[in-house]
Write a protein that binds this DNA or RNA. Structure first.
Length: 326
DNA sequence: AAATGTCTCAACCGCAAGGGT
DNA sequence: GACCCTTGCGGTTGAGACATT
């Protein structure tokens, strides 16, 4: 495994290490320490560059390296630390005894990053992605709602999430239709989406929340099971059903909704995503929050009445265009 | 069973920081 | 201050393993 030699200008060997080379390196370091990495290869009788030796030692041969799968706790730690430190792999590694920065980086790139993306989170900021197309996972969750309600078994849900890619394509198509003329329909959809998101998020006594359909309790339990199966408890809102919509809206509310005042009243200084005492990595300047875009597009001023309306789950699901495509 | 696609992760590359002269 | 050398870090690559068709 590993990268193949790309050049051999200096006559030094590159590429995967043999057991003999490993043995030489280990014995030399055990006896003399690594000293100058540049000088080490000659002293150890290795036809390698010092850099290669250092990498092999620090990432693979060091005796205190813990190998094998990452535990749930380690995974959780990486997520938490990455939310604070960003791609500072060496800094993250210092908090995970026995794990190397390279190993953590690989684990992040192959597992954790994908998970976050699938759940609609920006892997760099750990915040919900706010442009409409990158929020498709949120919408997919909505698209799954009806079937989830009718089909509460875990196996079926798992199957459905595996088909996410197909549904994303369909939903994309659906959105394309909606965002084209007639503008009234697009505006209606966007308005519905805003309202759905807000209703799902604002678990607050200040608002009159819509009454959920009777089968929603099943749905909530199912969603909880899904959330429980994915170790993202560092994001507090993932503990509740419809977490994806919830988090999306938290962003929305914090940014510019009329309910920002309510939100600030509870926790005026710290981000809900990060520990309060540590400054997060600044988010890159990105697209404006969803509501800003949508409000501009639809002319909806985010009035209080629009947030206190009837439940709109069914309105989305009953949309004939959605069913025509899906 | 073979072909093809996808995933994993060890190892490489280039750059930057820090220290010495 | 300028230059050189060494070390460390983060991004990327690609062979091999594994899964799917």
């Amino acid at each position: 495994m590993g990268r193949s030699p790309c050049c051999d200008e200096s006559g030094l060997k590159k590429g995967p290490w043999t057991p003999e080379e490993d043995d030489k390196l280990i014995k030399h370091i055990q006896k003399h320490g690594h000293g100058s990495w540049r000088a080490l290869p000659k002293l150890a009788g290795l036809n390698r560059c010092g850099k290669s030796c250092r990498l092999r030692w620090t990432n693979y041969l060091r005796p205190d390296i813990k190998r094998g799968k990452f535990s749930q706790e380690e995974e959780q730690s990486i997520l938490n630390l990455h939310a604070i430190l960003g791609n500072k792999w060496s800094a993250i590694a210092t908090h995970l005894p026995g794990r190397t920065d390279n190993e953590i980086k690989n684990f992040w790139n192959t597992h954790l990053k994908k998970k976050l993306i699938q759940m609609g989170f920006d892997p760099m900021t750990h915040r919900p992605r706010t442009d409409i197309f990158s929020s498709l996972p949120h919408l997919i969750a909505l698209a799954n709602l009806k079937e989830l309600i009718e089909n509460p078994s875990w196996e079926d849900q798992a199957m459905r999430f595996q088909n996410e890619a197909v549904q994303m394509a369909r939903l994309n198509q659906y959105l394309q239709c909606l965002l084209q003329p007639p503008a009234s329909m697009a505006a209606s959809f966007q308005n519905n989406l805003n309202t759905i998101n807000t209703n799902m998020m604002l678990n607050t006594p200040y608002l009159e929340l819509p009454t959920p359909p009777p089968s929603l309790a099943n749905y909530n339990a199912n969603f909880q099971a899904i959330n429980d199966s994915i170790p993202f408890s560092h994001m507090p809102d993932l503990q509740v059903p419809c977490s994806l919509q919830t988090s999306l809206n938290r962003d929305m509310v914090q940014a510019n909704s009329p309910f920002a005042v309510l939100n600030q009243g509870e926790n005026s200084t710290s981000s809900p995503w990060l520990p309060p005492t540590i400054s997060p990595t600044p988010s890159p300047a990105g697209a404006p929050p969803m509501t800003e875009t949508s409000n501009t597009n639809t002319g909806d001023a985010c009035s209080t009445s629009s947030y206190g309306g009837a439940p709109l789950w069914s309105e989305l699901l009953d949309d004939p265009i959605f069913h025509e495509i899906a």
